[in-house]
């Protein structure tokens, strides 16, 4: 598996798209710092970008890589290699190279700007950690979709739909259900609803570090009490890890059964 991982990783490192992705984040980080002149404000703007763009790019890139390297995969399948190690190697190759582009692309301009001397360093590291989690989650989901559909168009369609659902539609349904059941105590429901969607969970985690005064309103206090404590933080990260493990398990089982 490690050999395939290494191969995929170097293959991607040499590819144009990784550089584009890296350059995009580098530019974004620099422009934000240049316009804002303030680390904490830049971190807030960056949060919006990461919450929306990282899952999108992870999904699209994952699907694209799978379909593009399909012939090579078939060649590998002809060799005496374990199926799970082929697909996991490819998956981790993609996910790690994407995470690296994200961390380096955003990290370099912030470090030059004096991140280590700033108090925003914890907010910033949390931002990068959740960004990495989101990359891993959405690349895994993308591989799942690509494995399930031979048809490229169908695969891309479902991948985009998945992103659209988790990034936007889910929140709409969530909001509707909260308003619909407003006569009932909702704090448990809203906590569970947030936990179930990795994008919402990441957003809430970062938000509690930034918009504290708003969230400390009388309902916000409940969320702060949950997400703000170590217990809440551990639960949140555990949920994110589960969000990575479940799709990976499905990649393994699906790839074993799949007829190429």
């Amino acid at each position: 598996m490690l050999k395939i991982l290494k191969y995929s990783f170097y293959d991607l490192m040499r590819s144009r798209w990784s550089y584009v992705y890296f350059a995009f984040y580098l530019l974004l980080g620099m422009v934000l710092l240049f316009l804002n002149n303030n680390l904490s404000k830049a971190v807030i703007t960056l949060m919006n970008v990461i919450i929306v763009l990282v899952p999108l790019i992870g999904t699209i890139f994952g699907v694209m890589y799978y379909y593009n390297s399909k012939e090579f995969t078939e060649l590998l399948l002809a060799q005496p290699l374990k199926r799970s190690s082929i697909f996991l190697g490819q998956y981790f190759g993609v996910a790690i190279s994407l995470s690296m582009s994200l961390i380096l692309g955003l990290g370099i301009p912030f470090i030059f700007y004096g991140l280590f001397k700033s108090s925003a360093i914890w907010d910033f590291s949390l931002l990068l950690i959740t960004g990495t989690f989101l990359t891993f989650i959405f690349t895994a989901l993308a591989f799942n979709i690509a494995l399930s559909y031979e048809n490229k168009i169908k695969g891309f369609g479902f991948a985009i739909l998945l992103w659209l659902f988790l990034a936007i539609i889910y929140d709409g349904l969530f909001l509707m259900s909260l308003i619909l059941f407003e006569d009932y105590p909702l704090d448990k429901l809203s906590l569970v609803g947030t936990m179930l969607n990795p994008i919402d969970l990441s957003r809430t985690l970062i938000l509690l570090k930034l918009d504290i005064s708003a969230l400390l309103g009388y309902t916000g206090a409940i969320f702060k009490k949950f997400f703000g404590t170590n217990f809440g933080l551990i639960i949140s990260f555990t949920t994110l890890v589960i969000w990575i493990i479940l799709p990976i398990l499905r990649i393994v089982t699906k790839s074993k059964k799949k007829d190429f």
Partner: peptide
């Protein structure tokens, strides 16, 4: 309770 959706794209 909907405050939890603050800064969401939706």
């Amino acid at each position: 309770e909907t405050i939890i959706l603050l800064r969401s794209l939706f």
